[in-house]
Design a protein around this nucleic acid. Structure first.
Lengths: 324, 324
DNA sequence: TTTCATATGTCAACCGGGTGACATAAAAAA
DNA sequence: TTTTTTATGTCACCCGGTTGACATATGAAA
């Protein structure tokens, strides 16, 4: 059987209450007792049961992360940094890959509540506001969930502008955009808005090819290249799409960047490593991660009032490779 | 205040015990009571407290994952699939990014034990056997932890052979290998063993450039290309290194695959997407993930005896791109 | 000598839910 | 009609740790 406080107390020759006092450093304690208890704990290999403690204290030090998938390095890196930031602050992480399935996302929210998490950071974009209406600290990433839920993101509009303007500077005459569907109230839409604004400012026609959530990107890209023979600039909404555009273009003998310039988005360190030539808009992933955790923890600990400020936007950076 | 069983009971006009019976579907229950209770739960927005339940049942349905980082798509994808498999089986996941820091890994193990996880899946490679000597179901991925801990992996030796033999078939005369350091008892070393065996079989000199854990891959690759002007084949121990080799080679005007053929390793779907030209050895990530979770859950539920079989090896697949 | 801060023990209640024992009553089967 | 089965309630204890109230015993300061 696992040792419990009682066992430690017996071995150390003190009362269970005293052991608890040592553990929580409360009340008067002599060095002698502290040592005896520490020794007994080591000898028994005692490990406190956080369930029991949490049940009483009404705090679990658990945070739930709800994100589409760790398989995508953007989320993978974000989660990595957030987990680190949480760990540093004494919080543990319950991981939820919602896989872009609304039902799963909903089940996850309930699961997290059953597990009594102290807060949730959500970057999943399927659920309506309703599902997040529990009196629990929540921080959203790149997504407006409700009036009182703070949002952390990078400057998507600025990113869209940077990408579009770069292509214009580079003398592209026919610039297209590839993006996911617009349905969700995601700040990522601002990239598209920026693209459209820039096109308008330069009196150029804006045209966006959309890739449905479950759609085949390859097919859309092929179709784009078929239908738009005069395209010479593409702003892709993420690096994966950008890379695929480049691969498909090369397959067709279209030279990048001579005949076609491509800008991606995200600039994760993994993609930077593996595809350093790609011009992209880099999101400050670790800043976003750090801020999201900081906000959530402050909310949990009652320091931060979610009503005070609800949007935190970090600047992005243009990284020029040789694809433009 | 959050509603508890008592409140549900009061509203439904039944006893707390009956509510518990409904929740756990035990004993005799009329449809009528079931409905009344369900209605009361919905009305109060009742969510059971899993802490309390777990405290009594001695089961948390929590699994701990200890892996270096979700930022690497290999782990990101592995974790994604494992999390899905766990969710399907009714288990939740506590995520630990050990960041290749032994101290952190040790802290994580203790943290998981405090949280009363039902089991651990570890793919982190820093700790000695000792740290995992707690009477808790554990499954290791790609790493021998102890006699009784089952290991799930793909066939690293076969992968190393496939890669090396491909380069030989393609008439490479000077084939080098790039790998991490050998120190850890990782099955990944078998890739190197296979490379060395194949070289020996063909009476060719084997030479491995090692990249230290905290080392600069760029620098090693540069040095390799400087020191080995006659190299015409490189087997890299992962796709990231392979991609960097190709980038560096192109920068130097070395044509791939004409003058230099490169084989990577891992074949994650993200890298396949972004860099489809890369020849690589693909690990069956979802098979590994599925098996690891299956084993762990069987161990937890007492179905699987870890003494019975302790190694599960899945075949790898050679994916030929245009880098060879 | 008195007073007070220090140090520890005892005890019971509590966190929220699970469960076994037992009582009771109505409906169904023998 | 008697026996079973079904259906629910009551009650107390359990899980492991936390905490407040209170008692008691030192040693030091007043």
């Amino acid at each position: 059987m696992k040792p419990k406080i009682k066992d430690v107390a017996k071995l150390a020759g003190v009362s269970p209450t005293t052991v608890s006092r040592v553990l929580n450093n409360r009340g008067y304690l002599s060095v002698d007792v502290r040592e005896k208890v520490a020794k007994a704990m080591k000898e028994l290999n005692y490990i406190p049961n956080d369930l029991a403690r949490s049940l009483y204290t009404q705090r679990t030090n658990l945070i739930g992360f709800i994100f589409p998938t760790t398989a995508n390095p953007f989320y993978g890196e974000l989660i990595f940094h957030m987990e680190n930031a949480s760990f540093e602050r004494g919080y543990r992480v319950l991981l939820c890959n919602s896989s872009s399935q609304p039902e799963k996302e909903e089940q996850y929210v309930e699961m997290l509540l059953r597990n009594q998490v102290d807060g949730i950071i959500s970057g999943a974009h399927n659920l309506g506001i309703k599902a997040y209406q529990h009196s629990l600290p929540i921080v959203a990433i790149d997504r407006y969930l409700s009036e009182t839920i703070p949002v952390v993101s990078s400057d998507n509009y600025q990113g869209g502008r940077l990408a579009s303007e770069l292509l214009i500077e580079k003398k592209c005459k026919r610039i297209l955009h590839i993006n996911g569907t617009r349905e969700m109230a995601s700040p990522a839409n601002k990239r598209r808005d920026a693209y459209e604004d820039v096109m308008k400012e330069h009196k150029m026609e804006a045209l966006t090819y959309e890739i449905p959530v479950m759609g085949n990107a390859e097919e859309i890209i092929s179709r784009l290249l078929d239908e738009q023979p005069d395209v010479d600039g593409i702003f892709a909404s993420d690096d994966k799409i950008a890379a695929r555009v480049i691969a498909e273009a090369r397959k067709r003998g279209i030279k990048v960047p001579e005949n076609l310039k491509v800008v991606g988005y995200d600039g994760t360190s993994f993609v930077r490593d593996i595809f350093p030539d790609l011009t992209t808009i880099q999101q400050p992933i670790s800043d976003i991660a750090e801020k999201a955790v900081e906000l959530l923890v402050e909310e949990i600990e009652g320091i931060f009032d979610p009503g005070s400020q609800k949007e935190f936007v970090f600047p992005v950076q243009l990284l020029e490779g040789t694809s433009t």
